[in-house]
Amino acid sequence: MPELMYREALNQALAEEMERDANVFLIGEEVGRYNGAFKVSQGLLDKFGSARIIDAPISELGFGGMSVGAAMVGLRPVVEMMTWNFAILAMDQIVNNAAKLRHMSGGQLRCPIVFRGPGGAGGRLSSQHSQSLEANYAHFPGLKVIAPATPADAKGMLKSAIRDENPVIMFEGERLYALKGEVPEGEHVVPLGKADVKREGTDVTVITWSRMYYFCMQAAEELAKEGISVEVLDLRTLRPLDEEAILASVRKTNRAVIVEEGWALAGIGASVVDIIQSKAFDELDAPVERVTGLDVNMSYAANLENATQPDAPKIIAAVKKVLYRQGA
C-alpha cells in the first residue's frame, strides 16, 4: 500500500470526486493559484479550471453562504475554510441555513455541501488560532461532523462526505497534514458514522479522535510494556456518534477514558460519558475518566501551550486511575 501524507490523501479524494462528478467544486481562500494555504488543493486549478477551483475573497460568511445556495440547486460545493477559527464568521450560514434547510422546507430542499479545513490546538499560534471547535458543530441537528486522524480515513471520509446528501463539517488536523500513512489504492470510501477500533485491547478502552489519537497510541504502547492492554477506539465521526461501537468496546473492557483536545465543559466527551453511564452502567468497573484541554485560553509560550493540551503522560495517568493502579 502506498504511503501518503494526510494532505496528499485529501488532495487525491478531491481530485477523484471532482473527476467523478462535475457538480463538485472547491471554493476557499488561496485554494487556486496559491495551491492552498496547507497545499491540500495542490495542482487542482490546473486540472479543473477556475470555475471549479475558486479563489474566494476573505469573506467566510459570504462564500460560505453562497455555497449553501449553490447546494440548494443541485451543485455539490466543497468549502475550504483556511482554519475553523475563521469559519466562526460563517456560522450563521452553516447553522441557520445549511443545517435547517431540509427542515424549514418540510423536506423540499437538500443541502449536499462539505465545509472542511484544519482545526485543533498547538503550533505556537496563541488563542485565536489554536482551539478545537468541533463540539460547537456537533451540537446541531442537521449537520454531520467528522474528524479523521489518519491519511487513509481522511481520504475515505472526504469522499463519503462529498457524496453525502447532507451538510458535512470536516475537521482536519492542522498538525497532521504532513503526517504519513498507508492509504489503499483505488476506490477507498470510509462510511460516515462508523468508529474504528484502531488498536485492540482488553483492560481499558481509550476513546478519542483526530490528533489526540496519536497520543493515545503512544500511551497504549507505553502501557503495554507494563502489561496493560489498551483498546483505542477512534470515533472518526462526531455526529452522529457510533453508540454501538462505544458500547461494544466498553462492554468488553469495562473501563473507559475519553481523550479530547478541546475544553471539558459541553465537550463531545461529556456526551460519550452520558452514553456509557446510561447504557452500560452495570458493565463499568470504574468511573469513566476524561482527559481534556485545560479550561483556559491557549498561550503562545511553549511551556504554557504544552501544559494546556492532553499528552501521553496525562492519558497514562488516567488509564491507571480507572485501573486503580498506584503511581499514576
Binding site: 460568511l61 459570504g62 462564500f63 460560505g64 453562504g65 453562497m66 455555497s67 449553501v68 445556495g69 449553490a70 447546494a71 440548494m72 440547486v73 443541485g74 451543485l75 460545493p77 450563521d92 450560514q93 441557520n96 441555513n97
Partner: peptide, 12 residues
C-alpha cells in the same frame, strides 16, 4: 441571511 444564498443559486 438569504442574500448569499441567492448569489449561490445564480452561481449555479
Amino acid at each position: 441571511g438569504q442574500i448569499p444564498l441567492a448569489a449561490g443559486m445564480a452561481f449555479a
